[in-house]
């Protein structure tokens, strides 16, 4: 039985009068990709922000690898190995690929360590490895992120997250801004990240793609987690019905 990495139980969060999250629960195991789907305003991003440490919950409990986690900042989450990838804010456009992957975790030259001199060769080498692990191909690494395509950028962001994540990666719409080919690249990388032993939670509207990539689909509606479906056993209409809260109607219609 694979280990449970993220175990969120009955998490709630209000914004003023809006109950963004109500008793949302979720488990993600190692080597598993879970897609979080739901209509706009269903609470997906709030949920993910709580799991990633960007928001604190009002109620509920969160455990990472069986240990209770009370995050007050993104850094707290990173400390227990939970990394987040955002749609487009993750990387600085002017830094090169190795600089982006290592920002905040720079490798220093052993000889000139007291001056905090960077060991660029080591960072480049390890970047090659990190990218290779996920099957990411880039023609060059010594180019600024701004020169990469959207898919390449997102792939680098995922590679960065995988390199530093020790337990889980959370991704908020990693493919929303991408074309078909670019999305192919990123979805493949997402799968590879899970195969490397991490728990992966992805918010996405790209349902066909999620059905292919994810192991489970967790549906949210009005701040609640309303369904937990195996990707191999459901169809898109099933998921949409859960998202809209008409699953009963649909089931009876289909004669289930």
């Amino acid at each position: 039985m694979p280990r449970v990495i993220i175990d969120a139980a009955e998490l709630s969060r209000d914004f003023g009068h809006v109950q963004a999250l109500r008793d949302a629960s979720l488990r993600v195991h190692e080597r598993e990709v879970v897609a979080l789907v739901g209509d706009n305003g269903a609470g997906k991003s709030t949920f993910m922000n709580i799991l990633g440490g960007a928001l604190a919950p009002d109620h509920g409990s969160l455990q990472i690898l069986g240990a209770p986690a009370q995050f007050t900042s993104v850094r707290d989450a990173q400390a227990v190995g939970v990394e987040s990838v955002y749609q487009n804010l993750s990387l600085a456009p002017d830094l090169t690929v190795p600089e982006s992957i290592f920002l905040g975790h720079e490798v220093l030259s052993t000889r000139w360590r007291w001056l905090n001199v960077l060991d660029r060769d080591a960072m480049a080498e390890q970047s090659v490895k990190a990218l290779k692990l996920l099957g990411i191909e880039l023609p060059r690494l010594d180019v600024p992120i701004a020169d990469l395509s959207g898919g390449q950028r997102q792939a680098v962001a995922v590679a960065r997250a995988v390199k530093w994540a020790k337990s889980a990666i959370l991704m908020d719409e990693p493919t929303a801004a991408l074309g078909v080919r670019q999305t192919d690249i990123v979805t493949r990388v997402i799968r590879a990240a899970a195969n490397s032993g991490l728990a992966v939670l992805v918010i996405s509207h790209d349902m066909p793609r999620m059905l292919q990539t994810a192991d489970r689909i967790v549906v949210m509606r009005h701040g609640r987690t309303v369904a937990d479906l195996h990707a191999t056993e459901v169809s898109i209409p099933d998921i949409v019905a859960e998202m809209l809260g008409i699953s009963d109607v649909r089931r009876s219609f289909n004669g289930h």
Binding site: R75, V117, L118
Partner: peptide, 23 residues
């Protein structure tokens, strides 16, 4: 050559990314 320089550039390139990187 140094980490200080790299982080300075990162702060100017994307403050958001720098913060998310834990700087």
């Amino acid at each position: 050559k140094t980490r200080y320089g790299l982080r300075s550039l990162a702060l100017g390139s994307s403050r958001e990314a720098a913060v998310r990187a834990g700087l």
